[in-house]
């Protein structure tokens, strides 16, 4: 199943790049577009229930429903958390304004697809757990939403 359109476009772009430096530049530029969670959504100290388990970058995730659509926000407390910020940007670009079910299209492979095989196991787990946290919160929202 393809990813939500904006994510799929980034995946396709990265797949087309053979050069490691170019891939890294794309990911770094995504990280530079990272926006911290809005104060309307959460203020520090954040609820531990929003923390991504096993993430060295101390990432937090919020998935909110607005009507039938979802919006995701992130905090990355470790200033060195460049990879987490890049992934957060990718997820936000791909999921904001999408139906909540779009989170079902995310899978653990997304991390490997974006970051490649050079990812250490620690980074891999933290980033994969970010994806899982988004999916988990979206599923919870979906269950809570009124059924027709």
């Amino acid at each position: 199943m393809p990813y939500p359109q904006a994510i799929q476009e980034i995946v396709d772009l990265l797949r087309a790049l053979d050069d490691r430096t170019e891939r890294i530049q794309v990911l770094v530029s995504l990280a530079e577009r990272f926006r911290d969670v809005s104060p309307e959504t959460a203020i520090r100290p954040f609820e531990e229930s929003r923390r991504v388990p096993g993430c060295e970058s101390d990432a937090f995730v919020w998935v909110k429903a607005v009507g039938d659509n979802m919006f995701v926000e992130f905090a990355v407390e470790n200033p060195q958390g460049v990879s987490a910020k890049a992934l957060a940007t990718v997820l936000k670009l791909g999921l904001d304004g999408q139906p909540i079910e779009a989170a079902d299209q995310l899978d653990d492979e997304l991390v490997f697809t974006l970051f490649g095989s050079g990812l250490s196991m620690g980074k891999n787990l933290g980033l994969t757990n970010m994806v899982r946290a988004v999916r988990h919160q979206a599923v919870s929202l979906h269950r809570q939403s009124p059924r027709p």
Partner: peptide
């Protein structure tokens, strides 16, 4: 580094 993105930042 462990994190391959850090150097570029």
């Amino acid at each position: 580094n462990e994190d391959s993105l850090l150097y570029a930042t």
